[in-house]
Design a protein around this nucleic acid. Structure first.
Length: 199
DNA sequence: CTATTGATGGTC
DNA sequence: ACCATCAATAGG
């Protein structure tokens, strides 16, 4: 195998040990891989959201350190997977050094390997289904051999769009912060609900 | 095409 | 009583 067969390296710890607002745009273009036995599922990250710390009322860590949020306070480069609305899992990457509770939610993937054509990956719940990522992966070290992220060329900043995070209307001023990042015009970015239904 | 709602379960 | 969601349905 000549030069073209170069194997992509996995993202190192220092990549993750940074503020969520830096990691979130930098994750765009990287490749999330779930290797289970001989089955390899992979997708290119095209949409992320930053949850920047305990003071961020949209961040689960703002509830304090509980059994659920404990992983957010742990070392960077680990998975935070939680159940939402009783039926979907959401995949996050823990960032910042240990002790600082922050994470990046992955919201959109462009399928690369091992994802059936009947699966959609434009949304945090859908991409977890397609990648077979579940709460069993919670706390998993992303530098291991099972679930990891491979490096890839950075997406030029002029191709990155930003906007408010989705589904966090309850968080007051934090709901309006432009902490969502996506690759402009990419078809695998999730569809944004116009406004959340009110009663 | 847009708008609304039910499904479904862990956390607090 | 909330939800970091989605698909199906009702309505124009």
């Amino acid at each position: 195998m000549a030069a073209t067969a170069s194997r992509r390296s996995r993202l190192p710890l220092p990549f993750y040990a940074r503020p969520a607002l830096e990691v979130a745009p930098d994750l765009l273009g990287k490749v999330l891989v779930h290797q289970s036995g001989r089955v390899r599922r992979a997708g290119r990250i095209v949409e992320t959201e930053a949850y920047i710390g305990e003071h961020d009322l949209a961040c689960h860590a703002s509830k304090g350190r509980t059994k659920r949020t404990d992983v957010l306070f742990g070392p960077p480069g680990h998975a935070y997977v939680y159940l939402i609305y009783g039926m979907y899992d959401c995949f996050n990457v823990v960032v910042e050094p240990e002790g600082v509770a922050a994470a990046v939610l992955v919201r959109g993937l462009e399928p690369l390997e091992g994802i059936g054509p009947h699966h959609k990956t434009n949304g945090p719940g859908k991409l977890c289904r397609a990648m077979h990522i579940t709460r069993a992966h919670n706390r998993m070290d992303l530098r291991g051999d099972h679930l990891f992220i491979e490096d890839a060329p950075p997406v030029p900043s002029e191709l990155i769009a930003t906007g408010p995070r989705i589904g966090v209307e309850y968080s007051g001023e934090w709901a309006d912060k432009p902490f969502r990042f996506w690759i402009r015009d990419n078809p695998w970015v999730s569809k944004v609900p116009k406004r959340r239904a009110r009663r």
